[in-house]
Design a protein around this nucleic acid. Sequence first.
DNA 1: AATGGTACCAACCGCATTCTT
DNA 2: GAAGAATGCGGTTGGTACCAT
Length: 399
Amino acid sequence: MGRTPCCNHKQMKKGAWTVEEDQKLITYIQTHGTGSWRTMPQKAGLQRCGKSCRLRWFNYLRPDIKRGHLSEEEEQTIIRLHAALGNRWSSIAKHLPMRTDNEIKNYWNSYLKKQLDIKGLDTFSTKPICTVSSSSDSEPITTQKSKSNDMYMVPSKNIGFHEPNTNQQGSSKSESSQLLNKVAKKIVGSGYLDAVKSLQLIAGNNSNDDNIVTKNELESKSDSIIKQSHVPNFSTISSHSSTSAQLLNKMATSLCQKSHVHEAARAMFSKLMEGDAKSEASTDGLNLFEDEPKITRIIDSPSSPTLTFNEVLTHSCFLDNWQCFSSNYISFGNCAASGDESSVMIRSSSFCIESPNNYSTLCFLDENAPAASVADKSDDYFNEILMCEDEISKYIQYL
DNA sequence: AATGGTACCAACCGCATTCTT
DNA sequence: GAAGAATGCGGTTGGTACCAT
């Protein structure tokens, strides 16, 4: 069963493409179009894997891509989209016409990330990095955060991790690797990851199923999940090296911080409950949303736990007060547990994700942002920074 | 001129998902 | 429905150019 293999990899050429190869690929695609990458190399007279041909075409040869320096506007777009989407380069690339995901990824890794680090900005949330005191003796973790959405990478480069590189074959494991595997087993055994998965499952069910989980169910489920989960204690684990110890301390600290997402979710669910009775009156019969908002994803980043909603299309009822027609990202600051609605500020921008006929706007609830510090920003994208508790509470209540 | 460090980026690799048989 | 290849995506590597010493 199944298909025949696409190519014999042993006979395939690797490395940089020559001008002749490029020309062959271009000529073939101009005649026959893209697709059927499996058979393309042979038909085009190329000793390349179909995968390699596809990559070469999409990232370099196709005519509808723009190469060269990214503009200021493109740069800002990447920063904001990365703050909302994380390392989903293909999704980010869709909002930057004529730019490839590979180019954006390279630009981010080689330039933008460093620029943001220099400026002292958290590359996930684009907010200033908060200083979180570590319970361990190791250095603060503030600069070691993963830039990924929902997982934590081992920051090998920055902590002097001198273990041999065994990831290519996976045959020989260092002592540190073995130790980390043991830790991973402990984490899995603790039930913490199950708790996170359960939370995400709720979100997943909510987005895929017409039978939406009721607010009461969400509240009770989130409660039980929060009660069940606990952060594993790494203090008794012995390490074989100081770097491993530092790494483990960082992991432990990171996991402790992860409990914030539960608080964030809990606060959100509480607001859902509170808003239940009030929402009808506050919307005053207006049909604000064309579709029911549903939680589709929970990004459990400790620096910026985020609840992602499906795209909610609204009429322009908010237009006079603030430029957020709809919101599908709600990102909490580091102290979501504070939950003081009066200090909640919305930073809304006129930045549209996709808007053939409707608008979708990124919208961050920044609970710790003092009014002055945000208002001082001169960034064009944040030129609509307004305190509007009534609108915020109305929106939250409806959600 | 030689050397070392850094930045850039094309290309590769592995994994997850989708598709075909 | 199962098996396995094709495809798409994100992480990483390695070659090259450039710059500082």
